[in-house]
Amino acid sequence: MKFAVVVFPGSNCDRDMYHAAKDALGEEAELVWYQSANLSDYDAILIPGGFSYGDYLRSGAIASTSQIVADLKRQAEKGVPILGVCNGFQILLEAGLLPGAMLRNKNLKFICHFEELKVANRDTMFTTAFQQGEAISLPVAHGEGNYYCDDTTLKQLKDNNQIVFTYTNNPNGSINDIAGIMNEQGNVLGMMPHPERAVEELLGGNDGLKIFKSIVNNWREKYVTSA
């Protein structure tokens, strides 16, 4: 399986993503500069965290207008797995690939520590390696991770089982304790916690590795075992 790790000016978690896919998983991975607009050669796409374009205007706002995001939307329509983490999640929201928006953390401070999450939906291409309701620990590192949506959107997220991860002890004020959501099609996941920073015990835990393993296992089941 071949992963693309999209790199924007200001990305700072791209090497972590690359390490997770290349070294921890043992799969192919390439760093793709944002001015490259062809993502069709990749089986999955990773949008890393950081401060794309210095977080000017709003986090992820400028990056969401780049040419590679137009190609990202085309790949999303084709069903290609796309994972956006932290700033990557913010970019997916700004691009309209996921509903809702990000606000400043409720305490108006940057937070950086491990948080306990609950797997709210394990029946996705990103979470089949988990158990339903499993408690996991992943690091967070953000100043604008307070996920918000209106009541209609929240009801849709609940009705369609699009809420994938929730916080046990909500650190940022996110509505309904939301830590990660996916699109209705089920192939685009955005989450604020960093699974790529938790793929080895040396890093403080390896719960994040299960997300990457889920992507690979479901891709192989669909495209390899059925071939």
Results as ranks from 00 to 15, higher is better:
Leu103Val: 08
Arg104Gln: 14
Arg104Pro: 10
Ile111Arg: 13
Phe114Lys: 02
Glu115Phe: 00
Glu115Tyr: 00
Glu116Gly: 06
Glu116Pro: 10
Leu117Pro: 07
Val119Trp: 08
Ala120Phe: 09
Asn121His: 14
Asn121Trp: 12
Asn121Thr: 06
Asn121Gln: 14
Arg122Cys: 13
Thr124Tyr: 04
Thr124Ser: 13
Met125Arg: 00
Met125Pro: 14
Thr128Gly: 10
Thr128Pro: 07
Ala129Ser: 09
Phe130Ile: 01
Gln131Arg: 15
Gln131Phe: 15
Gln131Lys: 15
Gly133His: 12
Gly133Arg: 12
Ile136Thr: 05
Leu138Pro: 03
Leu138Trp: 11
Pro139Val: 03
Pro139Asn: 01
Val140Phe: 13
Ala141Thr: 00
His142Val: 02
His142Pro: 00
His142Ile: 02
Gly143His: 04
Glu144Cys: 13
Asn146Ile: 10
Tyr148Cys: 13
Tyr148Pro: 05
Cys149Ile: 00
Thr152Tyr: 01
Thr152Ser: 14
Lys155Cys: 06
Leu157Met: 06
Lys158Asn: 11
Lys158Leu: 10
Lys158Ala: 08
Lys158Thr: 13
Val164Leu: 08
Val164Asp: 06
Thr166Gly: 13
Thr166Val: 14
Tyr167Thr: 02
Thr168Cys: 15
Thr168Asp: 09
Thr168Phe: 09
Asn169Asp: 14
Asn169Ile: 00
Asn170Tyr: 06
Pro171Phe: 06
Gly173Val: 12
Gly173Thr: 09
Ser174Thr: 05
Asn176Val: 07
Asn176Leu: 06
Asp177Glu: 08
Ile178Arg: 12
Met182Tyr: 07
Gln185Cys: 12
Gly186Leu: 01
Gly186Trp: 01
Leu189Gly: 03
Leu189Val: 04
Gly190Met: 05
Gly190Tyr: 00
Met191Pro: 02
Met192Ala: 01
Met192Arg: 07
Pro193Gln: 08
His194Asn: 03
His194Cys: 02
Pro195Trp: 13
Glu196Asn: 14
Arg197Thr: 01
Arg197Ser: 02
Ala198Phe: 04
Glu200Ser: 00
Glu201Ser: 04
Gly205Asn: 09
Gly205His: 02
